[in-house]
Amino acid sequence: MEHREIGEQENGQELAEFERKLRIAMQRREAPLGMKQRVLARARERRQAQHGRWWMVQRIAASALLATIFGGIAVYKQVQERALERKRGEEARDQVMTALRITHKTLDHVNERLADNSKSTLGFQTFR
C-alpha cells in the first residue's frame, strides 16, 4: 500500500516537473522577421482595393441617381406637355362646339324667318 502511494507520489512529481518543463518549452515563438510588414502591406492593399470598389459603387450609384432625376424630369415635362396639348385640344373643341351651336341657332332662326316669310307671302297671294 505504502509502495503504491510512494509510486503515485513520484509519478505526480514527475508529471509536475514535466508540466513545468513543458511550460518553458511552450513559450511563444517570435514571429518571423518582416511578418508584421507583410501583414500591414496586405491590409493596405485590401483597403485600397476596397476603397476602389467603394468609389466605383459610389460612381455607379451617383450615375443611376442622376439618370433617374433627368429621366424623371423628362417624363414629367412630357406629361405636362401632353396635358397642355389635351387642354388646348379640349378648348378648341369647346370653341368649335360653341361655334356650331351658334351656327345651329342662327340657321334655326333664319329658317324660322324664312318659314314666316313664306307663310305671309302665301296669305297675301290667297287674299288677292
Binding site: R28, R29, E30, A31, L40
Partner: peptide
C-alpha cells in the same frame, strides 16, 4: 491602431499556428 494589434499579437498567433 491595427499596426499596434499586429505588433502585440503576431507572436501569439504565429506560435499557435505553428504548434
Amino acid at each position: 491602431d491595427f499596426e499596434q494589434l499586429v505588433e502585440e499579437h503576431q507572436s501569439m498567433v504565429f506560435s499557435l499556428a505553428w504548434r
